[in-house]
Deep mutational scan, measured.
Amino acid sequence: MDALKSAGRALIRSPSLAKQSWGGGGRHRKLPENWTDTRETLLEGMLFSLKYLGMTLVEQPKGEELSAAAIKRIVATAKASGKKLQKVTLKVSPRGIILTDNLTNQLIENVSIYRISYCTADKMHDKVFAYIAQSQHNQSLECHAFLCTKRKMAQAVTLTVAQAFKVAFEFWQVSKEEKEKRDKASQEGGDVLGARQDCTPPLKSLVATGNLLDLEETAKAPLSTVSANTTNMDEVPRPQALSGSSVVWELDDGLDEAFSRLAQSRTNPQVLDTGLTAQDMHYAQCLSPVDWDKPDSSGTEQDDLFSF
């Protein structure tokens, strides 16, 4: 819950932080000083300027060897085509990944977070970031790969997607708890209302004896509580940590079903599988986004697919 609360507080303090972009060759504004600060901008989305290598189908939802083989196929196909790589912007948030063309600003792909089953910074092609997700059109699994400016960037994108998945799962947990509370309150309110109706004398007997209905007592009954809980029953509950912020979080049926399955089948359902080692994760978390744009010590960066 700490990640969720800190993310909400950060967004309320400075929503404009989320509009910064990394990996864009110096076009961005001043960047936060450390990885923790940038992680807090996830709610509205972190932007990464990358190059799209392509996509291939895979048979399993996750796995280092599986993704490595898929990336190898994608890279080989991209090299064989001889075409310049498409420059894209990857927007990562707890909602998922939005992929747009840098030149036309046209939407290429919009992947809900619950469809993503794996992401990684490839070991062999260490400047490549990739994720595996279920197609929104059918049940097939797709591996999408992107060329980053350097290994640090690939690791940073991988960690960002993993963190977005974690925050999304926490949102789901909060929403589920809130819905259970509202359902319980609604049920209790309905029981109270039913009890009051059972003990209320029939209207005919009131008229016969000349008694008047006590409207004041009726007004004191917990009807307002019942209506408050039943009027918006169809509205999706939102985490309290975000009250007053500009973010509107809505959970669709697909996300609810997917996270429910994860909660039942996995020990740590909030953790998205990645190909990063503990050492890689520690190294990337210690980086400032400013470091992502620094040239690798191995030599001059080449803006070309064939540089790796």
Rank of each mutant, 00 (worst) to 15 (best):
D2G: 04
A3H: 07
L4I: 05
K5I: 13
K5V: 09
K5A: 08
S6M: 15
S6T: 12
S6Y: 15
R9N: 10
A10P: 09
A10D: 14
I12Y: 08
S14T: 11
S14Q: 04
S16C: 03
S16M: 06
S16W: 13
A18K: 08
A18E: 01
K19F: 02
K19L: 04
Q20A: 05
S21H: 15
S21Q: 08
W22D: 10
G23I: 05
G23F: 08
G25V: 08
R27C: 12
R29G: 09
K30Q: 14
K30A: 14
L31I: 09
P32G: 11
P32A: 10
P32R: 09
N34R: 09
W35Q: 08
W35H: 12
T36P: 09
D37S: 13
T38W: 03
E40M: 12
T41E: 13
T41R: 12
L42G: 04
L42V: 14
L42A: 11
L42E: 10
L43K: 15
L43G: 15
L43H: 14
E44H: 14
E44T: 15
G45S: 06
M46T: 13
F48Y: 14
S49F: 15
S49N: 10
S49K: 01
S49A: 11
L50H: 05
Y52K: 04
L53D: 06
L53R: 01
G54N: 05
L57E: 03
V58I: 15
V58A: 15
V58Y: 15
V58E: 10
V58D: 07
E59D: 13
E59N: 03
Q60T: 12
Q60K: 14
Q60A: 05
P61S: 07
P61M: 03
P61T: 10
K62W: 07
G63L: 05
E64R: 12
E65M: 10
L66A: 11
A68G: 07
A68V: 12
A69T: 13
A70W: 08
A70S: 05
A70D: 13
I71H: 08
I71M: 12
I74S: 09
V75Y: 09
A76L: 07
T77H: 08
A78F: 06
A80N: 12
S81D: 08
G82N: 03
K83L: 10
K83H: 02
K83A: 06
K84V: 15
K84R: 14
L85M: 14
L90Y: 12
L90K: 12
K91Q: 14
V92A: 15
V92H: 13
S93E: 15
S93G: 13
S93F: 04
P94T: 02
R95H: 03
G96P: 08
G96M: 02
I97A: 14
I97H: 09
I97P: 09
I97V: 15
I97M: 04
I98L: 02
I98Y: 07
L99A: 05
T100V: 13
N102E: 04
N102R: 14
N102M: 09
L103G: 14
T104Y: 03
N105K: 12
Q106N: 06
Q106S: 11
L107E: 09
L107M: 08
I108L: 07
N110I: 05
N110W: 09
N110C: 13
V111I: 04
S112N: 12
S112L: 01
S112V: 06
I113P: 00
Y114S: 05
R115W: 11
I116Q: 04
S117Y: 06
Y118H: 12
Y118I: 04
Y118G: 02
C119A: 07
T120P: 11
T120E: 03
K123I: 12
M124W: 06
M124D: 09
D126M: 02
K127T: 15
V128I: 07
V128Q: 10
A130M: 00
Y131G: 13
Y131H: 05
Y131D: 11
A133M: 00
S135G: 10
S135F: 15
Q136E: 14
H137E: 12
N138T: 15
Q139D: 11
Q139W: 13
Q139P: 15
Q139S: 14
S140N: 15
L141Y: 01
E142N: 11
E142P: 13
E142R: 10
A145R: 06
A145I: 14
F146I: 14
L147K: 04
C148K: 02
C148N: 03
C148T: 08
T149S: 11
R151E: 00
K152Y: 10
M153P: 01
A154N: 02
Q155R: 15
A156M: 14
T158D: 02
T160G: 15
T160E: 09
V161S: 02
A162C: 04
A162Q: 01
Q163H: 05
Q163I: 02
A164N: 03
A164Y: 05
A164M: 01
A164I: 13
K166D: 01
A168D: 01
A168I: 04
E170C: 11
F171I: 01
Q173W: 09
V174A: 00
V174D: 11
S175E: 00
S175H: 00
S175Y: 00
S175Q: 06
E177V: 13
K179V: 12
K181C: 12
R182W: 06
D183N: 15
A185P: 15
A185I: 04
S186A: 08
S186W: 03
S186I: 09
Q187L: 04
E188P: 03
E188F: 03
G189L: 01
D191E: 15
D191S: 08
A195S: 12
A195I: 05
A195G: 04
A195Y: 05
A195C: 04
A195P: 10
R196V: 06
R196M: 10
D198K: 13
D198N: 05
C199I: 04
T200N: 07
P201A: 07
L203M: 02
L203S: 15
K204V: 14
K204H: 03
L206G: 09
L206D: 06
L206R: 06
V207K: 03
V207F: 04
T209H: 07
N211R: 12
N211H: 05
L212P: 12
L212E: 00
L212H: 07
L212Y: 07
L213D: 07
L213R: 12
D214V: 10
E216N: 04
E216H: 01
A219F: 03
K220T: 00
S224F: 10
T225K: 10
S227A: 07
S227P: 02
A228F: 07
N229Q: 05
T230I: 05
T230A: 05
T230S: 00
T231F: 03
T231N: 15
N232F: 12
M233C: 08
M233D: 08
E235R: 15
V236K: 07
R238E: 02
R238Q: 01
A241F: 09
S245P: 00
S245Y: 10
S246M: 13
V247K: 00
V248G: 08
V248M: 07
W249D: 09
W249T: 11
E250N: 04
E250F: 03
E250D: 04
L251Y: 12
L251G: 05
D252K: 15
D252E: 05
D252C: 12
D252R: 06
L255S: 06
E257P: 04
E257V: 13
A258W: 06
R261I: 05
R261L: 04
R261E: 08
A263G: 05
A263Q: 00
R266E: 01
R266A: 00
N268E: 00
N268S: 03
N268G: 02
N268K: 07
P269D: 02
P269N: 04
Q270N: 11
Q270I: 08
Q270H: 08
V271R: 02
V271H: 02
V271C: 10
D273G: 04
D273L: 02
T274A: 02
T274W: 01
T274E: 08
G275E: 01
G275P: 05
L276H: 04
T277S: 02
T277Y: 03
T277H: 06
A278F: 08
M281E: 02
A284L: 00
A284P: 13
Q285P: 03
C286G: 09
C286N: 05
L287A: 02
L287W: 13
L287R: 01
S288A: 04
P289I: 03
D291H: 05
W292R: 12
D293H: 01
D293V: 06
K294E: 05
K294Y: 09
K294D: 02
P295F: 10
P295C: 03
P295D: 06
P295I: 13
P295S: 14
D296N: 02
D296P: 00
S297W: 00
S297V: 02
S297G: 05
S298R: 14
T300L: 02
T300S: 06
T300D: 03
T300Y: 01
D303F: 03
D304H: 00
L305R: 14
F306D: 02
F306Q: 05
F306M: 03
S307L: 02
S307H: 04
S307C: 00
